[in-house]
Design a protein around this nucleic acid. Structure first.
Lengths: 210, 210
DNA sequence: CCTACCGATCGGTAGG
DNA sequence: CCTACCGATCGGTAGG
């Protein structure tokens, strides 16, 4: 993997370590980048457009993030931080984790920009030399592992329909979330994102989702 | 929709109407475009790279396809023609149609370039002003309608598990195919594309898939 | 953080 | 189909 994103280096930089103005500026730039990546993809985005939305020049942006890739790393880093924060409140493996994913889907429906960013980046990052490729490899693994634990716990309690393989159910669930997002973004009025996830899970469980 | 792809105009052009050399050249260019779109996406592709793979200059390419969008239209046009050809042999609505989709998935696993192209384009074309947006709107509608008919036929024959909504099952099936493709391209060794589709369908049907 | 610049690359055109 | 070119835009750097 040639272009690994070194998330750690991103936190270093001229404006870290206590200067509030610089920290705010960095956050503004990341917010602008999320929006532009969602609209144009990573490769289709220009530092000039992102900088303009953050109210600086593209050379000014490069003062905070030395390369285009460093900015992408910071965007993914913040996303992980936000996800981790949300999962602080997470329940033990089981039906509560699945409810948590439904809540995440409800959150996403209200924030199409995030869904846009994620879907576009995931499709781009399929290429092995994409700077976010390793991020998505890890992301998918973590997502599957997080869900499979819950399906196993459900199976142990007899809350999973007999014969259902937890690993297959988990992989399929993660794929379904991704596929629904693209289809929903393309034809929002014709796709019930949360309802479809409920439909899928309802067919696997012997207990109600609530 | 501003940038509608006018597929019809693409068939017009200097090399249509009987000149075998020109027709072959056009096909070569489309083949090269499919490969490059799959690797770099539509926006990330350059006419120069596509032309180089077809053995001509980018100005030469523009002799056959007057704009970048006209080439995209031709690529989608050929894909539809190939799909239509395959569906000539199609069975009546029911379990055979689902088997047909499993066969398509098996075909896709052996042709990752096609999957790459489709996944990247679908994610890009989420944007309303993308030249392939309308294509994917129609594509998703057609896919759902094709599948829902089969689930309804299965339900009529009691081959669908009781309480399963055919429309939800169809939407979910199409989304699952898409989501699996991206996850499979990202981590091929960790995703069983065809097996996951079988898992999903097996949970819905009361008859074996074979 | 900015102005000013660099080399590279883009889609498209002129003119054969 | 090619050579030669156009204006626009890209990421990144120099120098302050």
């Amino acid at each position: 993997m040639r272009h690994d994103v070194r998330v750690r280096e991103t936190t270093a930089g001229p404006a870290t370590g206590g200067y509030a103005k610089g920290r705010i500026r960095r956050e503004d730039i990341i917010t602008a980048a999320v929006a532009v990546y969602g609209e144009a993809g990573y490769h289709g985005s220009s530092l000039r457009e992102i900088a303009k939305r953050a109210g600086i020049t593209h050379a000014g942006l490069l003062y905070y993030f030395p390369t285009k890739e460093a900015l992408l790393a910071a965007v993914l880093e913040r996303r992980d931080a936000e996800d981790a924060e949300r999962e602080q409140l997470q329940a033990a493996p089981g039906v509560d984790v699945l409810r948590h994913f439904l809540a995440l889907a409800e959150h996403n429906v209200r924030h199409p920009g995030i869904v846009d960013l994620y879907s576009r980046l995931a499709a781009e990052a399929v290429a092995e030399d994409h700077p976010a490729h390793d991020y998505f490899v890890r992301h998918y693994r973590a997502a599957r592992e997080g869900v499979v634990g819950s399906f196993r716990a459900l199976a142990d309690r007899g809350e999973l329909r007999p014969g259902v393989d937890p690993a297959a159910a988990a992989l399929t669930f993660v794929a379904l979330m991704d596929g629904l997002q693209v289809q929903w973004l393309t034809t929002p009025d014709e796709v019930d994102l949360v309802g479809s996830l409920r439909f899928y899970l309802g067919g696997l469980l012997t207990v109600p989702l609530g």
